[in-house]
């Protein structure tokens, strides 16, 4: 049953991927600026420009350009960066591991710490703790990553000297970026976990479980948690893509390489092939995250797979 559901979800990804690929392909043509202008020598003639445009295939019909591009993408051919003058695949391969490491660790941090704090906040009904948690969640949801990054650098790097200010050398350089990206996620996951657990506690079956004499711990971990995990899994799955793409400002402040900083750099130089490849990777990450979330939800709740399949 779950295999059939997964298969159907994968099928649905085909039209979604097609639509996204069209949007990504078109979006760079809607941007102001032209990479050819960056390559042309100042004072070049219109003929020089036409020659360069033809060299990069930008003189062909847009539809043809799209199908050539998508065909190449299917074969893993990302093409040559126009301004950075390297194979785009090399640039992505150089930057992706940094993004995956940072994103993966931030994801792990925000999910474990967020769920733990959310659970504590739902179970320990102390007004002071409750207020603290509400404050923390509000702070985590609203503090801009850029500002938090600078605060963390000032405290942990400048005052305490524990971690390097920037760079991508060794595990110590990962701590502050992971905390920066993870902080917002912790607050979000904690909030969702807390609400889900509080809702679950109000269900009738919980009263029954208490009446049967089960301990609070057993009720929480064996019965309430699986129940409350559904929305948490959804949120976490959606954050997979967000964490990869949302690291842009953090990569900038910490001077780290990654897909986000590559994307920003390529956008600034209007390097279409690089922008397209980065956007495609980020879109794939979001789609993959959503798929994982859906499948995980379906595997936990038979009602979903029955309704949706």
């Amino acid at each position: 049953m779950i295999l059939r559901y997964t298969f159907l979800r994968l099928l649905m990804l085909i039209p979604v991927s097609f639509s996204i690929s069209v949007v990504i392909f078109m979006i760079v043509y809607l941007l102001p600026g032209d990479p050819i202008d960056n390559l042309l020598r100042v004072g070049s003639s219109p003929e020089d420009r036409a020659e360069l445009v033809a060299q990069y295939g930008l003189d062909r019909n847009l539809v043809i350009q799209y199908f050539v591009w998508i065909g190449n993408m299917f074969q893993g051919e990302f093409g040559q960066a126009i301004v950075l003058r390297r194979p785009v695949a090399d640039l992505v391969a150089q930057n992706l591991p940094y993004s995956l490491t940072l994103g993966g660790l931030a994801f792990l941090f925000s999910s474990t710490v967020g769920m733990t704090l959310g659970t504590i906040s739902a179970v320990v009904r102390h007004p002071v703790l409750d207020r603290f948690m509400r404050g923390f969640i509000l702070l985590g949801s609203t503090v801009p990553g850029f500002w938090l990054a600078l605060l963390l650098i000032l405290f942990f790097s400048v005052n305490l000297g524990w971690f390097p200010v920037s760079g991508a050398g060794g595990w110590t350089s990962l701590v502050l970026p992971v905390l920066t990206i993870g902080f917002g996620g912790v607050a979000l996951v904690a909030r969702v976990t807390r609400v889900a657990l509080l809702d679950a506690q109000r269900e009738d079956f919980v009263t029954l479980l208490h009446a049967k004499g089960l301990s609070s711990g057993t009720i929480l971990f064996r019965h309430l948690m699986p129940h409350a995990l559904l929305p948490v899994v959804t949120i976490l799955a959606l954050r997979i893509g967000w964490i990869l793409g949302g690291a842009v400002t953090v990569e900038f402040v910490f001077g780290r390489p990654g897909l986000g900083s590559l994307l920003i750099r390529a956008l600034g130089q209007r390097d279409y092939p690089v922008v397209q490849a980065c956007l495609l990777m980020l879109a794939l990450a979001v789609m993959l995250g959503t798929l994982i979330g859906d499948v995980a939800q379906a595997s936990m709740d038979p009602r979903i797979r029955e309704k949706k399949s």
Partner: peptide
């Protein structure tokens, strides 16, 4: 030679010996 895009970060790297 490092490329540090944010000038504040580069400045703090110098202060902290990075």
């Amino acid at each position: 030679f490092r490329e540090i895009p944010d000038q504040s970060t580069a400045f703090l790297e110098l202060r902290t010996g990075g």
